[in-house]
């Protein structure tokens, strides 16, 4: 402390600062990151390359990693295979887009409203409600798969798209992250002045809280999106006309090595959407994750 004060008065010439990296350290860090970065990246590059490989290159021996003569044939093949299924392909796309849109929008609104109430309003039961949400982060949904099936069939949601998006609405990670973000970013004074002006809590939630927590709802969307986008409906859906895009694509991809190119084209299509969304929203996500800490 004394040193700091002396420094601020210019009494101490030596500059105290954060430890800068030495050149050796930089090289080591660079090597480590390059090594593990390529472990992460190479399979993805392999997908991209395979997706553009013509048939003869798929069967070259020894197999080549990179594509020599890139072609769009795999994507064209996909377009050829698609119309031969007896439900129009646009139907699968529509189903997945619908499920994803309802699921993400609903999740963001419901989880944000609940997070706002749990953090900023006083009502009996709010502590136990939040603790139960935190507890649920500690086990995954596979534990509840069987009772969930029984409940979904009890409420007559079997073989409906709602069986995919309704359970998604209550994802606990979303509520948790939203509440942590509200703690640090929504000042009580702002809510106070809104209340003095006579605004109701729902109005305050939509007009005051929601605009402030925009980075957090982008984060909620990013976390819930891949699950919905890749959702197959599993055991819940059996009618062909409400099956989703991943189901249709997986059926096509199931053709074995002969379809390796087409199946990579499919993987590329499925992966590209979440990745683009992440790139667009990453600064908001980082802002939200900065408040993600668990305090106990």
């Amino acid at each position: 402390m004394i040193l700091a004060r002396m420094k601020s008065k210019g009494l101490v010439k030596k500059k105290y600062r954060i430890h800068k990296q030495t050149t050796a350290e930089r090289v080591i860090i660079g090597v480590i990151l390059a090594l593990f970065g390529s472990f992460m990246l190479l399979p993805l590059i392999y997908i991209v390359n395979t997706a553009f490989k013509p048939m003869d290159e798929l069967f070259i021996f020894p197999p080549r990693f990179f594509v020599i003569n890139p072609t769009l044939k795999n994507f064209r093949d996909l377009a050829v295979i698609i119309p031969s299924s007896w439900v129009p392909f646009s139907r699968y796309v529509f189903n997945t887009v619908l499920v994803t849109a309802i699921g993400t929008t609903g999740h963001v609104i419901l989880a944000s409203a609940a997070a706002y109430a749990m953090e900023k309003l006083d009502f009996p039961g709010r502590k136990i409600m939040f603790s139960s949400v935190v507890l649920s982060l500690m086990f995954s949904t596979v534990v509840t798969a069987i009772p969930n099936y029984l409940i979904i069939s009890k409420v007559k949601l079997i073989d409906t798209l709602a069986s995919i998006y309704i359970p998604a609405l209550q994802s606990s990670l979303g509520l948790y992250l939203m509440k942590q973000y509200i703690v640090t970013n929504v000042p009580d004074s702002l809510l106070e002045s809104a209340r003095i002006e006579g605004a109701g809590e729902w109005r305050i939630f939509f007009k005051v809280v929601m605009p402030i927590v925009k980075p957090a709802w982008l984060t909620l969307i990013i976390f819930i999106f891949p699950g919905l986008w890749n959702a197959t409906g599993g055991v819940y859906i059996y009618s062909e006309q409400i099956k989703t895009l991943p189901v249709a694509l997986l059926q096509i991809a199931a053709g074995g090595i002969a379809r390796a190119g087409v199946s990579s084209a499919i993987s590329l299509i499925m992966i590209i959407v979440p990745v683009i969304m992440f790139i667009i929203t990453q600064s908001s996500i980082m802002e939200t994750m900065a408040t993600s800490g668990l305090k106990e």
Partner: peptide
């Protein structure tokens, strides 16, 4: 990216 890639692990 690999964690949000859905079934990209099939590669």
């Amino acid at each position: 990216t690999p964690s949000i890639g859905g079934n990209a692990y099939l590669v």
